[in-house]
């Protein structure tokens, strides 16, 4: 994944929210990251620190919340939760699963002053 672009996206949103809500600093920012989003969390944390410099989120604490990976099994036609993109279906053992949730990369909220 391109963690630098994600950090840039976060920065843009921080700037937009700062303008809308009139805050000057972000203390803590929470992200929700799906298991299938392919985000390298250590890399994102690093990029976050670099990219937020000079923005209200400079020095902010970054918290990442995992969201489960959910897939549709094309063998038993049920929605199942799996930890890894290529895991077999926990119900029927089938291997043809299409993700239906778990690719999220969202800013959940920010604590600001």
């Amino acid at each position: 994944m391109h963690e630098m672009s994600l950090a840039e996206g976060i920065r843009q949103m921080v700037l937009a929210e700062a303008q809308r809500h009139g805050f000057t600093a972000v203390r803590r920012l929470r992200l929700e990251i799906g298991r299938f989003a392919g985000v390298e969390k250590t890399a994102l944390a690093f990029c976050f620190d670099v990219v937020m410099r000079g923005s209200p989120a400079e020095g902010a604490e970054l918290e990442m919340i995992d969201l489960p990976g959910v897939a549709m099994c094309y063998d038993c036609m049920r929605e199942v939760e799996i930890a890894d993109r290529l895991d077999p279906c926990p119900i029927c053992g089938g291997g043809r699963l299409v993700p239906v949730a778990g690719d999220e990369m969202r800013i959940k909220d920010m604590e600001v002053v």
């Binding site: 809500h21 969202r106 600001v112 002053v113």
Partner: peptide, 15 residues
């Protein structure tokens, strides 16, 4: 001023 929580709930790649 006091800290407050802003709910964003927006995709990072929304732009």
């Amino acid at each position: 001023s006091q800290a407050r929580l802003i709910e964003v709930e927006t995709n990072i790649l929304a732009k």
